[in-house]
Computed example of a mutant assay.
Amino acid sequence: MTMLFKKRKGFVLISTMLIVLMLSVIASEMSKAFFLDIRKEGYLSFDAIAHTKRIESEKFLLNFIKRELNKNTNVNKQNPIFNEDLIFQFDDFILQGSLTDFANCFNVNHLITFKAGKSKDNLKAIKYFEDLLLNYEINYLDTEQIIDQILDWMDDDDVPRNNGAENYFYASQLHYPREYTSKRLFINKSELLAIPSINRIKNRDIWKKLCIIPMSSNFYLNINSLQDGDKYLLSSAISQSNLNEAALMIKETPIEGFSSIKEFLEAFNLQEKELPIALDISSNIFLFNGTISYQGFSYNFKTLIKKENNFNYRIIDRL
Rank of each mutant, 00 (worst) to 15 (best):
E266G: 09
N203P: 04
K7S: 08
D142N: 01
K120Y: 13
S24C: 15
L123G: 04
E68G: 10
L18E: 10
F46D: 04
Y168E: 07
L233Y: 02
E137F: 01
T291F: 02
Q295D: 04
Y128C: 14
K66E: 14
E68A: 11
K273N: 13
L18G: 13
K6S: 12
V20A: 14
M30E: 14
T143Q: 11
H110W: 00
I305W: 02
D280A: 00
P276S: 02
N310K: 13
F258H: 08
L287T: 08
I255M: 14
N122R: 04
S182P: 10
F35C: 10
Q96H: 15
I94G: 08
S98G: 07
S241C: 10
T113P: 01
K118H: 14
R54E: 11
K59L: 12
I19E: 13
I198G: 03
S236N: 05
N139F: 02
Q240Y: 07
G42P: 08
K118R: 14
T253I: 12
Q173L: 14
F34Y: 12
A116P: 08
F64L: 13
E191R: 03
E274Q: 10
F311P: 04
I26F: 15
F219Q: 02
Y176M: 08
I126P: 07
M215P: 02
K7V: 12
Q295Y: 02
I281E: 05
Y232I: 01
Q78S: 10
I81V: 14
N107T: 05
S293M: 06
E308Q: 14
N300D: 12
